Lab assay of single mutants.
Amino acid sequence: MSIQHFRVALIPFFAAFCLPVFAHPETLVKVKDAEDQLGARVGYIELDLNSGKILESFRPEERFPMMSTFKVLLCGAVLSRVDAGQEQLGRRIHYSQNDLVEYSPVTEKHLTDGMTVRELCSAAITMSDNTAANLLLTTIGGPKELTAFLHNMGDHVTRLDRWEPELNEAIPNDERDTTMPAAMATTLRKLLTGELLTLASRQQLIDWMEADKVAGPLLRSALPAGWFIADKSGAGERGSRGIIAALGPDGKPSRIVVIYTTGSQATMDERNRQIAEIGASLIKHW
């Protein structure tokens, strides 16, 4: 067993022997301040990774656009098919120029040779490549099948209805392509620590998230040296922004954090800054 596999296998073990965790309302004060600064709703939840206990939450059962955070769930569904012998990570998928959609920095470079399922998941999570996500959605049967996968996990809230990039439209009061912070946090925890996926697939999923290259201005910008984070960000229309993450000190994750916002007129930089400040408060009061 590799060191990384050992780390993920012992996530519940280490967490069980940690000192009790206590909620700190100071972080919620910052979440509410972010709402004021952005002029928009902000949803927040913080779960203990081992027990699933909610440590703090704000608007945990209000719907927010998922945006690209759905790509972690998508690759979880792909990995479940791999575990069941219905898919192979090494299978190569070929596609054409007509398949390319807006923001496809990886797939646009491989029109000639195609990409493997493993490479597509890596591109979808680490670079948020939209064509990679659409190609992977095709392998599982489309958005409705991802929703069905989530329902089978016990998540009857999260739903995907459309493809990239239309799913980022974020129309107010439109339930399409949305989740709730509580539902997303619980589902992410199941994917990373539950028995739904094999140990190898859980490790692969967290490795992809740990290698995320496009979430630097968010929670990662607030992390002290030595902290662990595996995350996936999302951005959408109407001032929408979000991030889902597993993080913790001492090089291992111990909490799940989900943050979503929508309806702001603020710039992307300002949305990023507010999420980073929430992260800084979380870490300060850990």
Rank of each mutant, 00 (worst) to 15 (best):
A40V: 06
N98F: 14
K109V: 12
E26N: 14
R220E: 03
L55A: 07
A280D: 15
A215E: 06
L282F: 09
N98L: 15
Q37Y: 13
C121Y: 00
R91F: 04
T112Y: 15
V31P: 01
K232G: 00
D177H: 00
E35W: 00
I259K: 03
L192G: 00
L111P: 08
E46H: 08
Q204P: 04
P60E: 13
R63P: 08
A276T: 08
S254A: 13
Q203T: 10
P181I: 05
R91W: 05
A182I: 13
T193L: 12
S57E: 12
A133W: 00
Q204S: 10
D83C: 04
R162P: 02
D207I: 11
E108C: 07
P217F: 08
K232P: 00
L89K: 04
P249H: 08
S221V: 12
F228G: 05
E195I: 08
V117Y: 04
E169Q: 12
S96R: 13
W227A: 01
G263D: 10
N168K: 02
T158L: 02
G242E: 00
T267D: 12
T187W: 05
E277M: 09
T126D: 07
K53W: 09
L73R: 04
M268Y: 08
K53N: 14
G194M: 11
G239K: 02
L205A: 03
T27A: 07
I140Y: 08
L146W: 06
T147S: 11
T126I: 08
K144N: 15
K32W: 10
E108H: 12
S233T: 12
E46M: 13
D155I: 02
S122K: 12
L199Q: 12
L199S: 14
E210S: 08
S68G: 03
A215S: 08
A222F: 08
R59F: 03
L218T: 03
R41I: 09
V82R: 07
K53D: 15
N50K: 14
N272C: 05
D36N: 15
L218H: 03
A246C: 14
D113V: 10
K144G: 12
A276V: 10
G90V: 11
P105I: 07
R238W: 12
I54V: 15
E277L: 12
T178D: 00
S128E: 00
K252E: 12
M153I: 13
D113I: 10
G90Q: 15
A245H: 00
M268N: 08
L79T: 04
E175D: 14
K53T: 13
E195Y: 09
L146V: 10
E26G: 15
R81W: 06
D207R: 14
D113N: 12
A245W: 05
K284D: 12
H24G: 12
P172I: 10
G242M: 02
E35C: 02
P224N: 05
S80H: 15
L55I: 13
I140N: 05
A225I: 10
L223T: 12
D207Q: 11
Y95P: 05
P224T: 06
G90W: 13
E145F: 11
R92H: 10
L247N: 04
L219H: 03
W163M: 12
A124R: 01
F58K: 06
W208M: 08
A40W: 05
V31Q: 01
Y103T: 06
H151S: 13
K232D: 01
K144Y: 10
I140L: 15
G216L: 08
Q274S: 12
A77T: 10
H156W: 13
K144H: 14
E119Y: 03
K53R: 15
G154Y: 05
W208G: 02
K213H: 10
F64E: 01
S96E: 15
D99H: 10
G242H: 01
P249R: 12
T138W: 14
V257P: 01
L160M: 10
R176Q: 10
S201D: 04
E87D: 13
R63T: 08
T178N: 03
V29D: 15
P217L: 09
M67Q: 08
I275R: 02
M67L: 09
Y44H: 03
A276D: 05
Y260H: 03
K32A: 15
A185T: 03
G239C: 03
T139L: 15
R255K: 12
M184C: 05
E277F: 08
T27S: 07
G114Y: 04
I171Y: 15
G142K: 03
L73Y: 06
E56V: 07
D48M: 05
I229F: 04
R202Y: 05
H285Q: 11
E35V: 04
K232R: 05
S80N: 15
I125V: 11
S221D: 09
P217Y: 08
N98Y: 15
G216Q: 10
A276I: 07
L47D: 03
K144C: 10
A225T: 11
L197C: 05
P105L: 06
T116G: 04
C121N: 00
V258H: 04
A211T: 09
I275C: 05
S240W: 00
Q265G: 14
A133E: 03
H110M: 11
L192A: 07
L28Q: 10
L167R: 01
R189L: 14
K30M: 10
T147R: 10
P105W: 04
E119S: 09
A123R: 01
P65F: 03
F58P: 00
A34R: 01
T178P: 00
E62W: 06
Y44V: 06
T179L: 03
E46D: 07
L199I: 15
G85K: 12
E26T: 10
M184G: 01
T139M: 13
A124T: 13
L282D: 03
V214L: 08
L196M: 14
I93F: 07
I229A: 04
L38V: 07
D177E: 03
M153L: 11
L135Q: 07
H151V: 12
T267G: 13
G236V: 00
G90D: 14
L192H: 05
T262Q: 10
I278C: 02
T178F: 02
M209I: 01
V42Y: 05
P224Y: 04
L282Y: 03
T116P: 06
M67D: 05
R238S: 11
T262K: 09
H110I: 06
I259E: 01
L47W: 00
R271F: 05
L223S: 06
A148C: 11
N152E: 15
E277H: 09
S201G: 12
L282K: 03
F64L: 01
M209L: 08
S240R: 00
A40L: 04
N130P: 01
L55Q: 08
E175A: 12
D129M: 02
N173M: 12
G39C: 08
L219P: 04
S80V: 13
E175C: 12
N50Q: 14
G234M: 03
H110V: 06
Q88R: 15
G216N: 10
I125R: 00
G142F: 03
L49M: 14
A133V: 04
V117M: 11
L47Q: 08
G76Q: 00
L89M: 12
D231F: 01
E175L: 13
A235I: 05
A133M: 02
R92T: 14
L188R: 01
E145N: 12
S104F: 04
R271Y: 04
Q203A: 10
G52A: 07
R92A: 09
E26H: 15
A84D: 12
P249T: 08
D33W: 09
L188N: 04
G194T: 14
I45V: 15
L191E: 00
Y95G: 04
L191T: 06
G154P: 05
D231E: 06
T158F: 06
I275L: 11
I283W: 07
I283Q: 04
K32S: 10
Y44E: 00
L135C: 05
W163I: 10
I244L: 11
T138P: 07
M153D: 01
Y95I: 10
T187D: 13
K190V: 15
A132Y: 01
R271S: 09
G279W: 02
D250S: 14
P105T: 05
S128H: 00
L135S: 04
V101S: 08
R271Q: 11
S264D: 05
R202F: 05
R162G: 07
S254H: 12
F58V: 10
G142D: 06
R91T: 08
L89C: 05
K232M: 01
A211F: 09
A34H: 04
M184A: 06
A246M: 13
F228H: 08
K30L: 09
E145Y: 11
I278L: 09
S128V: 02
A132T: 04
P217H: 10
Q88L: 14
P105R: 06
L136G: 02
G226L: 05
S96M: 15
V82P: 02
T179D: 02
L192Q: 04
G114T: 04
G263M: 08
D48F: 03
S51D: 15
L55V: 12
